[in-house]
Design a protein around this nucleic acid. Structure first.
Length: 319
DNA sequence: ACCTGTCAAGTCTGG
DNA sequence: CCAGACTTGACAGGT
């Protein structure tokens, strides 16, 4: 049973390597000429894409294949102020090069649209904005030449007073999406509203993969033992060319137990590992810790010292 | 060089 | 019914 580890969006080790550089709308508005505004946006986007290339080199050199792209790669891409900016054409070469590099090195990339993306909102305009945001993420992957196995992870959304109705609304809205989005969207359980049991039910109905977040499950779970659900959750990936993925983070402290801690608590992970061993299937782990890749390396060094797993490389183990 | 308030976006809670 | 919390990295303006 092989497990590959990855991290989210940016490195705490590489300096001055943010792939999320942006400008505020207020400041961009101060530039009167639209051509000059676009030059500013393009220059920021190019810096971000160049930093992604640096992150890719860094990842490759440390055997890290699992990585989440930031949603802020193209600054203000979905904001009205940038509506006349054809970033996908202008940056086609850079995006394609990154995608080629990712495929050559068998990177497993993904993205996680932010919590404003709500497919189950009862408000038409929120749904429209959400679809626009999903299209933006899709456009990036498409320009990179990455097919629908490169996924967009989202949450079910809000409760809107009636949870069952809101789950139904998610399903109905999903049915109405264009196929290229349906093929990319996968769901994750959240820490407050939709538990792994809820999300599994939706994923089974829509025949889409589910990402299990074990920290969220720990926060929000109907007293379900994840062990009972793990085979079914992993089974939602059976038609995909890639193994199941889970999200791993540790609670910050007792008071802020929903927040992500700086690093991963070894015992928190080992507890899950014992349950996963019973399913005995390869899977990938996205580490969501404040220390990003630093937390990954710390967890790996702790795993190296125990006999329960065999070290394959800097970012993978055999259990 | 460093510090702090603010930022495109939505939802939920508490007053 | 409305203001503030939630959460996050980075900007922007100030010291």
């Amino acid at each position: 049973m092989r497990i590959n580890f990855g991290y989210v969006a940016m490195s705490t080790i590489l300096q001055d390597c943010s792939p999320s550089k942006t400008i505020t709308v207020k400041n961009l508005s101060r530039i009167a000429d639209e051509k000059l505004r676009i030059i500013k946006l393009r220059s920021l986007a190019k810096t971000n894409l160049n930093n992604i290339q640096r992150l890719f080199f860094h990842n490759k050199s440390h055997d890290i294949t699992v990585f989440r792209l930031t949603s802020k790669l193209i600054p203000l891409a979905t904001h009205p102020i940038a509506q006349n900016w054809d970033w996908a054409s202008e940056l086609a070469y850079e995006l394609k090069s990154l995608g080629d590099y990712a495929r050559e090195n068998k990177f497993r990339l993904s993205a996680h649209p932010e919590h404003f993306t709500l497919l189950n909102s009862p408000k038409e305009e929120i749904l429209t904005a959400s679809i626009k945001d999903l299209e933006y993420h899709h456009q990036i992957f498409k320009a990179m030449g990455l097919d629908s196995s490169t996924k967009l992870v989202i949450h079910v959304g809000g409760r809107y007073e009636d949870k069952d109705l809101s789950m139904e609304r998610f399903i109905n809205n999903h049915h109405k999406l264009p196929l290229h989005l349906k093929n990319r969207i996968i769901l994750e359980n959240d820490d407050k509203i939709y538990t792994s049991r809820d999300v599994l039910k939706i994923c089974q109905e829509l025949k889409i993969p589910m990402v299990l977040d074990i920290h969220h499950h720990w926060c929000n779970n109907y007293n379900d033992d994840i062990e009972d659900y793990l085979p079914a959750i992993f089974d939602t990936w059976k038609d995909e060319p890639i193994p199941p993925k889970i999200h791993l983070s540790s609670p910050r402290d007792q008071k802020h137990f929903r927040n992500h801690a700086d690093n991963i608590d070894l015992l928190f992970f080992l507890d899950f590992l014992e349950k996963a061993k019973k399913v005995n299937q390869d899977f990938d782990v996205m580490i969501e810790a404040k220390n990003k890749d630093g937390a990954l390396f710390q967890l790996m060094s702790e795993l190296k010292d125990i006999s329960r797993v065999k070290f394959i490389n800097e970012a993978s183990v055999e259990a």
